[in-house]
């Protein structure tokens, strides 16, 4: 099972660790995931983005062998998740932090997971230390706050020192300190060459963490691209122009789409250079001329609002 080598934007060697091919999942008449194909590479944080109900959690459950695809296939480092002898040493996943037996102590919860994958018991103490739960190791998890449960879930994911990490909405319920902690952890894990696949419906969160984005809407792939490209490609990038002679300027900008605002114009579909030259050719004075980059959030909103109208664009 040698993974395919691919060139990485980050320079170093990257490997394809997760592959989904034509993945489809139906629940009765609902199509939760619809012909999704993508790959996830090592050494970077890949954000899995989409609005509520887009099919992110369903896709992750299929990647991890919990749900059976109606169609298509998924492989983790070359074979289905269920065929890995010690899956916790290959993949660490946090799906639902509350999906634990509340009657066990944090230590015992991690211990039974460790034993099932031949992981030494000493590792339990290490991961508890790593996530800052050593103090409560002997408390029952039923009494944990959501933030503590989230940390315990991350401890469980880290137990087997896995190459691949999958987190479903890991920042849910965390305070700003916790969010920063997870973000740093994910960046560090990717920097160590691991594969980090993390879902979110918050673009702003991904903007600060992810290198690559896989965007889904209504179960379909909308975009599979680097974060930079994703912003760049958005049609929301516009040129902001202000001039004392705005009415004279408008007819010159037929090459773009012009929106009038109080004291300026927003031109879509033309570069700042084109607008500037058009104005100069008629000798019109410009007081302001600049390209406004869309925020990631805006680009994302635009893509997902009418997700079905967008054909998949792959880089």
């Amino acid at each position: 099972m040698p993974p395919d080598e691919v060139s990485s934007a980050l320079g170093g060697d990257a490997w394809i660790m997760i592959t989904a091919k034509n993945l489809t999942k139906r629940y009765g008449s609902t199509v939760a995931v619809d012909g999704l194909s993508f790959t996830v590479e090592s050494g970077q944080v890949t954000g899995f983005l989409g609005p509520n109900g887009a099919g992110k959690s369903t896709t992750m459950r299929m990647l991890l062998g919990l749900d059976h695809p109606s169609h298509g296939s998924v492989t983790i480092d070359g074979k289905p998740y269920t065929q890995h002898e010690h899956p916790l040493r290959k993949v660490g996943a946090l799906l639902d932090a509350k999906a634990v037996h509340g009657g066990r102590t944090a230590r015992n919860h991690l211990l039974c997971l460790a034993q099932s994958n031949g992981i030494p018991a000493s590792r339990v103490g290490e991961v508890l230390e790593l996530v800052g739960l050593s103090e409560v190791a002997r408390r029952r998890i039923g009494g944990f706050s959501l933030g503590m449960s989230q940390r315990l879930g991350i401890a469980a994911a880290m137990l087997g020192d896995p190459e691949i990490l999958m987190f479903d909405e890991p920042v849910n319920g965390l305070d700003p300190e916790g969010i920063l902690w997870i973000r740093t952890l994910m960046r560090d894990l990717a920097a160590e060459g691991r594969t980090v696949f993390v879902s979110s419906h918050l673009m702003s969160e991904m903007a600060q963490t992810a290198d690559h984005l896989i965007v889904v809407g209504r179960g379909k792939l909308i975009a599979d691209t680097s974060v930079q490209e994703f912003i760049g490609r958005s049609s929301q990038r516009y040129v902001r122009v202000s001039s004392p002679k705005l009415p004279d300027l408008v007819p010159l900008l037929a090459g773009g789409e012009v929106a009038m605002h109080d004291d300026h114009l927003r031109v879509l579909g033309m570069t700042a250079a084109e607008v500037g030259e058009a104005a100069a050719a008629r000798g019109l004075p410009l007081h302001e001329l600049r390209t406004v980059e869309p925020t990631l959030e805006a680009a994302y909103m635009e893509l997902t609002q009418e997700s079905t109208e967008f054909a998949a664009v792959t880089s």
Partner: peptide
């Protein structure tokens, strides 16, 4: 059934997918 009630079954199956 205790594992199904709490959702622990999913954690269990991640560890032992067979």
């Amino acid at each position: 059934s205790g594992e199904y009630r709490t959702g622990m079954i999913r954690t269990t199956l991640l560890a032992v997918p067979r």
